[in-house]
């Protein structure tokens, strides 16, 4: 009897503790990028004026974040970076909540996040549509010439075997395709949703992986098609074929800095826009290779870019 009583008491205590945790908000993930992202939020929150540069959980985003931070620091504006935060769905919440101030973004991907039915494909149209959709507290600075789009990519062998040129060609083989991509690709318009709508491509199965594991899966035939960025060094190194996308599931993804208005002083804007002007697709791809293939430290690659382009 005594044991039953103490068990009941413990149960009630646990229920109360749970209820207490849930009291504050309807969704813990939306209250703090900090809690959602673990250690991903850059330090320096206490000091006013410090720009905290966040990054998505793939190497190029972390590299561009390092470049922004290095450029700002070189001009005497204190900027910090942290560990990568996560997918767009997660780091945009961190920006809203104010635990980061600046994050490298991609124009079309960001536009389709706010407006899944966006039909603009040209860089200028994408940009102007994007500026209208942004939350009131955020602005985007200048677009860089550098473009890094999402793709549907296959190996040379698969392309030859199935005679593939476009994503539409791949759709005919849907039942034989295992698709490798980050987990969020499943529920994105620039992902399985859009591929189904526009090409009727519904892969037999989906393999949720991250970073180089996606490239490995494609290379070793654990996946027959994959979502790989156009600047990914593996495309050249492994001879992958990017399938053409005539119906524009993936749009013009120029690199744009997304920043909280409150932190976007004229000086900050000038510094970041100067970086943007120098950031071309070739330079970005070359730096991606240094980081992902040669395993150079992203912050030293970033500093090199700043000094060799007269930005520091």
């Amino acid at each position: 009897m005594k044991r039953t009583l103490s068990a009941t008491a413990l149960g009630i205590a646990a229920a109360l503790a749970l209820a207490a945790c849930g009291g504050g908000s309807s969704n813990p993930l939306s209250t703090g990028g900090g809690s959602a992202s673990g250690g991903g939020v850059p330090s320096g929150s206490a000091k006013a004026g410090t720009i905290r540069v966040g990054a998505a959980n793939f190497p190029e985003s972390q590299l561009i974040a390092e470049i922004y931070a290095a450029a700002l620091n070189a001009k005497g504006i204190k900027a910090t970076t942290g560990d990568p935060i996560g997918a767009r769905e997660v780091y945009l919440k961190a920006l809203q909540q104010g635990s980061i101030d600046l994050v490298p973004e991609y124009a079309y991907s960001l536009l389709t996040f706010y407006n899944p039915s966006a039909s603009q494909t040209e860089p200028d149209a994408v940009r102007s549509a994007l500026t209208k959709k942004l939350p009131s507290g955020d602005i985007v600075l200048d677009s860089a010439p550098a473009e890094d789009s999402n793709t549907v990519t296959v190996t040379k062998e698969t392309a030859a075997k199935w005679k593939l040129k476009t994503i539409g060609d791949l759709a005919k083989h849907s039942k034989e395709v295992t698709f490798a991509a980050p987990a969020e690709f499943q529920s994105r318009e620039q992902g399985l949703k859009g591929l189904k709508k526009k090409y009727n491509l519904v892969p037999k199965s989906f393999r949720a992986l991250q970073g180089t594991a996606i490239v490995q899966a494609l290379k070793n035939d654990q996946a027959q098609a994959a979502n790989i960025f156009t600047t990914d060094p593996s495309i050249k190194a492994d001879g992958f074929v990017i399938l053409k996308d005539p119906k524009h599931v993936f749009g013009s993804d120029n690199v744009v800095p997304l920043i909280r208005k409150a932190k976007a002083s004229t000086k900050v804007q000038t510094v970041i826009n100067a970086v943007q002007a120098k950031l071309t697709t070739d330079k970005l791809a070359a730096m991606d290779k240094k980081v992902q293939v040669d395993h150079k430290d992203a912050s030293s690659v970033a500093k090199q870019f700043i000094s060799s382009n007269g930005l520091g």
């Binding site: 939306s30 997660v90 949720a208 991250q210 594991a213």
Partner: peptide
Amino acid sequence: AAAISVGGLGRYLIDGLANSDYAQM
């Protein structure tokens, strides 16, 4: 195992986090 694309209940944790879907996680 969900981190390397295997099924099981871990999928809800990994996919839920990637899509910021708290209820699923």
